[in-house]
């Protein structure tokens, strides 16, 4: 009887200890696990990649490959817009996907705007930008604020709708200045390119722990036809499935899993200067496999945070399932015993 009771009524402190160990150990001792990419993540990746000059530029010397010089010479006419709508509490889930998308953009030379209406998200944008640019600048490439990306930064929530709608005509008129107070029309990413409104900035990627992405679908997509992709905490992902199926949402990175999938795609394709291919995804080359080994130092830790976290999440999920099964075994044994006593 005691055994049955224990199965059902294990003190919650023991459960806490088990969960803590299940989460901490895989983080201390990382291991490689297979990350299967899902269609919503692949769609988002492919759309961002399609804006890259490595895909769009002319192959001037006819060698079949777009070189760095050819990519730089290309007059950029595509960009993405990243809207950060979360505070630090959801960073463990959302930050890795924001870093992965930014890293993808920078390596593939896709210009991006960053923006938030949450004052607590402004430092998150700065953090993400510094994480990505610091690492890339170690390779000798200089990343320039205002040229490779524009950080619009924080704008008051009252301006959300005016900005969202105003960018359909002209980004510079809608947001006026970046976070440093520079006028958008004076920044090279606007001044020297063809990027003006949603026609060129044809993807909004919104990260949040809520259904805030809906605003972009309702106002910007229906009015201007802009593509909307979302990055969400896992608990909010189920809410977006109707929009994914209808095509109003072109792609989604959901929770740590979505972030891990995106990290994988960046390491497999962007880091090897390749365009996405389903065939190569199933049969990766040695160079791709080297980048996927999270136990080695090939990829800096900050760019594999989601995959490292997925190990902990894996073990925690299995442990929770074991607890649920144990609780149910105890419940049925007790029920059987009660029926016998009747």
């Amino acid at each position: 009887m005691n055994f049955i009771k224990n199965l059902q009524g294990l003190d919650r402190r023991y459960v806490f200890v088990f969960i803590a160990v299940a989460i901490i150990m895989p983080l201390i001792f990382p291991f490689n696990s297979l990350t299967y990419t899902t269609t919503p993540v692949e769609n988002l990746y492919q759309l961002i990649d399609s804006y890259s000059p490595y895909v769009r530029a002319d192959d001037l010397n006819g060698d079949g490959i777009i070189s760095e010089e050819e990519a730089i010479a290309f007059k950029q006419d595509r960009a993405i817009f990243m809207d950060f709508f979360h505070d630090a509490s959801t960073m463990p889930e959302l930050f890795p996907m924001e870093v992965a998308v930014m890293r993808h953009c920078i390596y593939r030379r896709v210009p991006f705007f960053t923006f938030t209406i949450m004052e607590v998200a402004a430092p998150i944008i700065e953090e993400a930008i510094s994480v990505v640019t610091d690492e890339i600048q170690k390779t000798g490439r200089v990343i320039e604020r205002g040229k490779d990306y524009i950080n619009i930064g924080y704008k008051p929530p009252a301006l959300y709708l005016p900005i969202l709608l105003g960018m359909g005509d002209d980004i510079a008129a809608a947001v006026e200045t970046d976070t440093d107070g520079n006028r958008i029309e004076n920044l090279p990413m606007y001044r020297d390119t063809a990027i003006r409104n949603y026609t060129q900035m044809n993807l909004v990627y919104e990260t949040s722990g809520s259904d805030q992405g809906l605003s972009w679908m309702i106002y910007a997509r229906s009015r201007f036809g802009v593509n909307v992709g979302v990055g969400l905490t896992a608990v909010m992902a189920a809410d977006q499935y109707p929009y994914l199926q209808s095509g109003q949402c072109v792609g989604m990175t959901a929770g740590l899993k979505g972030a891990a999938e995106y990290e994988n795609l960046v390491d497999m394709f962007a880091m090897n200067n390749l365009t996405f291919s389903k065939g190569q995804l199933d049969n990766p080359t040695e160079a791709m496999m080297a980048n996927l080994d999270i136990t080695s130092d090939t990829v800096p830790t900050k760019f594999k945070m989601a995959r490292l976290g997925m190990n902990a999440q894996s073990v925690a999920h299995i442990l929770i399932i074991v607890f649920i099964i144990l609780g149910n075994i105890g419940y049925f044994l007790e029920k059987k015993k009660q029926n016998k006593n009747l």
Partner: peptide, 12 residues
């Protein structure tokens, strides 16, 4: 869903 969300569940 919990098993499908994690690589370890897929492996099992």
């Amino acid at each position: 869903i919990m098993l499908g969300q994690v690589p370890l569940g897929m492996a099992i």
